[in-house]
């Protein structure tokens, strides 16, 4: 009953909290060409733990923004975000107003989309069923 597969099927959080589960989900997303959404999700968690007073934190915020949100063409993350969420983050980064929770809303939107789409597909995918 407490097999890894049963745990991973409980919730996206239980899947992503487990190294093997997260690795398997990554392989699935690589096939679907949307691994960016997973990297962004982890980047948001990593950012939340950074010290807002550290100069490195601003560089990381800019890097996340540039890589996943600003990208004009075909960014899978950018497509899943609401316009107000994107403009909020643009203002934070350009105005250098950093807060550990600044990516929370964007992360929640990407997470909801993963739960509705990629996670459900993953639970019925060959990669999961053959594990």
């Amino acid at each position: 009953p407490d097999s890894p597969l049963a745990r991973w099927a409980k919730s996206l959080h239980s899947l992503l909290g487990d190294k093997e589960g997260a690795d398997l989900f990554r392989r699935f997303l690589e096939r679907q060409r949307c691994v960016d959404t997973l990297d962004f999700w982890f980047a948001c968690n990593g950012f939340r733990q950074m010290d807002p007073g550290d100069a490195k934190t601003l560089r990381v915020a800019k890097a996340i923004y540039k890589r996943y949100i600003e990208s004009g063409g075909g960014g899978t993350v950018a497509k899943q975000l609401k316009p107000p969420t994107k403009s909020f983050l643009r203002d934070c980064v350009k105005g250098q107003r950093l807060d550990p929770s600044m990516f929370d809303q964007a992360q929640a939107e990407v997470q909801a989309s993963m739960e509705d789409n990629a996670y459900r597909l993953f639970l019925s995918s060959d990669i999961y069923l053959e594990y």
Binding site: D18, K19, C44, V60, A63
Partner: peptide
């Protein structure tokens, strides 16, 4: 000085679950 990609990768890795 670390490149932007390195910083981003470091941030992602810091949040990934570790092997038990």
């Amino acid at each position: 000085i670390d490149s932007e990609d390195d910083l981003l990768q470091e941030c992602i890795s810091s949040a990934m679950p570790k092997k038990k």
